[in-house]
Nucleic acid binder design. Structure first.
Lengths: 251, 251
DNA sequence: TGTACATCAGTGAACGCGCGTTCACTGATGTAC
DNA sequence: TGTACATCAGTGAACGCGCGTTCACTGATGTAC
């Protein structure tokens, strides 16, 4: 079912990896036109998502916007759900990229507190700039839709950034030995993102991660109205508190 | 617009407050039939919500279930949004009631840790038992719908329970003097739920509140798949950690 | 290099379904004199 | 107590709109000999 999506990803990579695409202009004219249209459809869908949310996403409306007939979309996406999957992956990559960029922008790699703060603020900024994309991936599940396994690596990018900062803060090299299984967390987690992190810190790391998204979600979905005056300052304060509880700075 | 909802609430109260309703059987036969039907509609809507989520909520389907014509619903609810409002209020009251009950069930009122844990677990249990209701109030906003002011008091019930426990833990009487405004939190909050709570504790209380719902949301919406093995034990551990960070128990 | 065939993009019509809301109307229930 | 009138519940048809998906088809683009 997802073959199209994979095809798209492959094509995008092809475009990026193959610089001399003009050297063979004959072959793949159709393929390139196809890739361009897939991109155009996804982009239009992304715009509709941003404007009206996932519920208002309609193949017909997208086709209308592109000046084509609705059935033509089926040449590129086998169904609405596959288009949704493409958008979900895009959203995860977008927020994940924002987090990675914010982390990388801190020159002093040893300043884990600055990196932590940068990433948290980047997540919040991204969410505020893309509320519907955020709701698509971190809000209520779309009814009747189950995210395919292919989305997972994209979904974990933010957590890997945060975990990396924590590991740097704890001075754990990439060769750290995995901690014994705690029963609470999966071996998968303890052997990848949180490898070498003691259980106590691992749990608190997960908590801070959920807290970060809990705060962003509550602010974005309007649950803080009437409770918080200065949302920016409040969030900054929360980020600092979380940095302490996660062990990045001493109390 | 919400007059119907108010009418419903009034009626329900009337039924509860007035025990000798049979003493005046003539007057209000129509009114009682009306109240019964409003209740039936809301109940059917609640069932549909539980089964298919807010997106699948349709006046026509509800009318069909009740064996009446779709336009008849408009005798009781002026629009779909008003029905949604009724459901939102019901959901908030349901989870709020669950929290209050869990708190009240702890006999030893001085054992604030036990009360804290009981309420947190009640919130999670309610969410797991009523995922669509939870998503309705704590998930993505329903597109095109803005919650009227009337929902606010129902929405705050859980937070009042948690705040009450915190205030008991800090041994603050009901006559505590409000703390000076911090600039972060609203005066409204500092003068009601968190009256007398020092700013440091107030911020951490809000954080724990958001964290609680962040955890429940992530678990419910599937974000923890692959990271957590024993969800029950993990949640319990989180609740204990939060109790510490909020100042209910010493480290 | 030219031709025959296969592949593919896009069309247009249709299927079958759903929805919220309005409106004129019938009949029953309550109310005032 | 009985009658005239007003209120209200529920009907049935209609408006106007949307959607995802299928299918037979045309015409253009690529491919193999």
């Amino acid at each position: 079912v997802l073959s199209i999506v994979y095809t798209v990803l492959e094509m995008c990579e092809d475009d990026a990896v193959e610089p001399d695409v003009d050297a063979r202009p004959v072959a793949g004219v159709r393929a390139r036109a196809r890739a361009a249209l897939v991109a155009e459809i996804t982009e239009t869908a992304r715009r509709h998502l941003a404007e009206q949310g996932a519920a208002g996403l309609s193949l017909r409306a997208i086709a209308r916007d592109l000046g084509m007939v609705s059935s033509a979309i089926y040449r590129y996406f086998p169904s609405r759900d596959d288009l949704l999957t493409a958008l979900i992956i895009e959203a995860y990559d977008s927020i994940g990229g924002a987090a990675e960029q914010a982390d990388a922008a801190v020159a002093d790699r040893a300043n884990v507190l600055a990196r932590w703060r940068a990433v948290c603020h980047a997540v919040r900024q991204w969410a505020k700039a893309n509320p519907h994309e955020y709701a698509l991936v971190y809000g209520s599940p779309v009814p009747g839709y189950v995210a395919p396994q292919a989305t997972v690596p994209h979904a974990t990018r933010v957590s890997f950034v945060l975990a990396g900062i924590l590991r740097d803060g704890l001075r754990l090299g990439p060769d750290a030995a995995p901690q014994p299984s705690t029963g609470l967390l999966t071996d998968e987690l303890l052997e990848t993102a949180l490898v070498g992190v003691p259980e106590e810190h691992a749990v608190r790391a997960l908590m801070a991660w959920m807290e970060l998204f809990g705060i962003v979600t509550f602010e974005l979905f309007g649950q803080l109205v009437g409770a918080v005056d200065d949302a920016d300052a409040f969030f900054d304060r929360c980020v600092s508190e979380m940095a302490v509880s996660v062990g990045l700075v001493g109390t």
